[in-house]
Design a protein around this nucleic acid. Sequence first.
DNA 1: GGACACCATGCTGTATACAATGTTGAGTTA
DNA 2: TAACTCAACATTGTATACAGCATGGTGTCC
Lengths: 220, 220
Amino acid sequence: MNTSANLVYEQVREMAANFEFKPAERINESELSKKLGASRTPLREAMNRLAAEGLLAFEGGRGFFCQPLNPQLVVHLYELREALEADAIRLATERASDEELAHFQQYLHDIAPRYTDSAPAREIVTLDEEFHLKIANLSGNPELKNMIELTYARIRYVRWISMREKIDITHAAHESIFKPVIARDQGLAVELMRKHIKKSNNEAIETVEKAFSQLYVPRH
Amino acid sequence: MNTSANLVYEQVREMAANFEFKPAERINESELSKKLGASRTPLREAMNRLAAEGLLAFEGGRGFFCQPLNPQLVVHLYELREALEADAIRLATERASDEELAHFQQYLHDIAPRYTDSAPAREIVTLDEEFHLKIANLSGNPELKNMIELTYARIRYVRWISMREKIDITHAAHESIFKPVIARDQGLAVELMRKHIKKSNNEAIETVEKAFSQLYVPRH
DNA sequence: GGACACCATGCTGTATACAATGTTGAGTTA
DNA sequence: TAACTCAACATTGTATACAGCATGGTGTCC
């Protein structure tokens, strides 16, 4: 149902994932609720959900904060992603029907032209997430998929930034990950997925470390 | 801080994990809030967090419900658990210091006497969770640990029931899982952990299926 | 007898008020 | 100048009120 709390939830979720709040910024409830056209009650309900998901931080008596990303947290989230996706592709290789795999291959073929150098980084990240969530869907395990989706939301922002530099290779990588799935080669599928995520992780860490070093440049 | 919403959260979390609500039961907010000595506002905030964690279900316009366990969901949660714990022990084997491992071995030795046939199933489950969460801690990844902890809360109830029949073997299994960790044998540690969880999964599924068959016995 | 409509009741979803706590900044002192 | 005090202010946390929707039961019609 489209309750006000749900609408507010969607909006604030986007805002948090897109880092429209400044890192560690305290979020003013009255102000934000006015901006979103609701009262504080549904806003707080939405923010409680987001805090449980890890997209916002919460401190009793002081309210809600933007959850800042630091290099360590990014490493941890990528490790989580790797654990979840390695098993997702393992299960997908085992369970997906031939028909599902054929559809997937068609999909991969169809979106290829959208991976161009001129595409903005954010769109590439969207396409990349789409690929990975489709794999997660083929695992047939919605709980696994939800966790992966959640983990993506938490690292989306850093991916936007780190994606700027390496657009073209993504689609090729996806194609080579999918090949062993079709061949029902579980071991290779898992291995390639892990490598893919590890590589992406290294780039993301670099991005965050760069941002950190810029942050701490003395100003005077 | 010990805000009322936090206290209510802890209490309702326990109630949900312990299935003190009947499966798929609609939870009456006024009634429950009165019982817990708070108003509906903090109760709803707590339940929003629990719904985000998957411990309660939510339906817009109709409120919060007990999230019922069915055989399929149990399978999915155990798969999630396997994915997370396999990587947790992989990371733990890699990262834990020799000192941490020595402490862990001491801990395993110390709690051995508490695994007796006379111990109630719930205590064995508690000890078992403790073991697995300690491993998760050794991974050095708090995000991974949180997800594991959450997954445990969601399957705790079915484990209480299925544990009744096979108490004695748990501690021995833990010891054999930990051996390759000390030997820094990553492959074997992961393999044993996966097998351990799979076995536990089979028992849990059996429990839920038994419960389901009893539920649907015609009454007249 | 079964299905449907309708009303009374109860419950949820949200706005608002207020108490309690945290925050900020001016003024004071060492 | 730096640190500390304290009071005015801002913000959070919670209770409560109320509108609107869901629910359950009664009566009516087929």
